[in-house]
Amino acid sequence: MSFIKRDLPVVISFILGIIVITQYFWIDPTLTITSTTIQGWAVVIWAFMMSIGVINIFIRETRSIISKKAGQWYYSIIIVVFLSCMILTGIIGTTNNPIYLYLFNNFNIPINQAVASLLAFFTISAAFRAFKARSLEVLVLLFSACVVLLGNVPIGSTISWTIPWTRDWILNVPNLAYSRGINAGAALGILGLGIRTLLGYQRSAYGMGAEE
């Protein structure tokens, strides 16, 4: 039992992982076909994961409605009703169903955009009340922010040619240097994590605790 629960997932991951990685470096028709088939399975598994996610939301929100969880149950009703509507209309008439499109165009898009628009209001009040040059570091940050903001819109170059020039310098020199450094570090981290997962040291990836 412990082999099935503990070691088999690691063995399967190791074998499949090695096949996919090898295919990347070594061109062989059999290896390519095997790798493509494995990656095709991943797509099916991914689709299943989405279904599990939806079922999980249903169970969670239904429980919240039944137990009348304080401050949440009425939101749960909205989630369950709209989730059901989108799923049913999508299944019955595919995503080209006029009702599905109506719900998407008139609820999903405006709600998403309204949430995004709220950021503009918070940024505006933060710009006035919070972005204060209280130290030299903050002053540098503020200067960079103002230059990049103005340089991002064509009016910046109308005010002065130095604004887009400085903005490009900020983006292409300090920004690029730090982001490349961070990315190189992250890539090495991902590589290390991948090797640990394939070798079975990263137990949390298999739904097990580190101590198991």
Partner: peptide, 10 residues
């Protein structure tokens, strides 16, 4: 306006 607010605020 955002940049103007930052300047006025400061």
């Amino acid at each position: 306006l955002l940049v103007t607010f930052i300047i006025i605020g400061n």
